[in-house]
Design a protein around this nucleic acid. Structure first.
Lengths: 195, 195
DNA sequence: CTTTAAAATGAACGGGCGTTCAGATAAGGC
DNA sequence: GCCTTATCTGAACGCCCGTTCATTTTAAAG
């Protein structure tokens, strides 16, 4: 019995996760029923509870997985020395990673308010970890005299908002290629930090 | 009878609108019931239907009002000549306006997916009008050789995302004053367009 | 082929949903 | 005081919700 083996939160079936991510991103957590998710998987609603203790935990697990994957992926990137190079790598990584996971990204930004306080705090902490990665680059760049930024915390938020915004308009079939988008965004970011 | 006088969509009582904006922003459209809105106003659920034909129209009216007010407010701003001045005015206006209406802004960005197709298209058109205001400034600046931007459409989206992002972190009681935030964002924007 | 455990069903639970409407209440003009 | 008209109530409608659970189906292991 899956219900008795180990902790729930980690083992949600991949098919369920995929269906839930898709549906939550399209219609929103509150607007999607467990029955809809089950139908997308090809199963009855009751069967979902073999894999997750409840709907809230399902959402939380999806969001946590998204953030932890993001942090792991960034840490796995080779790290160069110069702040300017690191900033370029961060920009390109951020755009690429988020464009590859539009649904997960959407959920992570839109469904924060549907998390219970304890879960909200956990996701918030992961997000702050990611922001800290960028802020460290900015601070190093300022310390080395390469960047001109009066407030690295504010600039961190500004840059992340700008970069994540790509997800709202980019279409694979559109006028601009990913590589071109990456390049133009990086040019704007580089100039905005005064480098 | 309110129900028979004129078109519904325009006359939703101010108390209902305020309560709905607050609740939709806090919990999301799908998660808020008509009964909750009614309770916040101090009335029974049925009474709401004297002022709006249904929940969907209530959401749509709130979003349309937000976008139309935004466009009107920008058009009412005095318009300077030089693209650089106009860009500065736009940045400061955008930040100020959105910080003054955090709930309405939140809804306008988060609840698009809960609009029926026809309503979605209408709100989308208003948003494109607003984006066009910024893009015109950027194009003029490029034409005059003041800005260096390979793609003004992309830059429009990038800048609006960056500026609107202020709403996600700014707190009136925080470390930075509005004026200081405006100034720093404007510096980043100015540099990002190559001016 | 039998045993055993995992996976899924399908009905049921109490409860909240958006919306309607006949009837009560309140507010002014005469 | 009466009449008109706007406002609101409160119960009801059918429907869907998240979740539980006894029971059945599926699938390996021995």
């Amino acid at each position: 019995m899956a219900r008795k083996t180990g902790s729930h939160s980690e083992i949600t079936g991949p098919r369920i996760r995929e269906a839930a991510v898709r549906l939550f991103a399209r219609h929103g957590y509150a607007a999607v029923s467990m029955r809809q998710i089950a139908a997308a998987v090809g199963v009855q609603a009751g069967a979902l509870y073999l894999y997750t203790p409840d709907k809230q935990t399902l959402l939380f697990d999806l969001m946590r997985a998204h953030m932890e994957d993001l942090l792991r992926a960034w840490q796995a990137e080779p790290m160069r020395r110069a702040p300017l190079h690191r900033l370029e790598d961060f920009c390109r990584f951020h755009i690429r990673y988020h464009l590859d996971r539009t649904d997960g990204t959407f959920i992570s930004y839109m469904e924060l308010r549907n998390l219970e306080p304890k879960n909200f705090e956990m996701i918030g902490a992961l997000r702050r970890d990611y922001e800290a990665a960028l802020e460290t680059i900015l601070r190093d760049g300022v310390a080395e005299g390469r960047f001109t930024l009066p407030d690295t915390k504010l600039s961190t938020m500004a840059l992340i908002a700008m970069l994540t915004g790509v997800n709202t308009w980019f279409r694979e079939s559109g006028r601009l290629s990913r590589e071109r988008v990456e390049q133009i965004y990086w040019d704007m970011v580089r100039r905005s930090v005064g480098a």
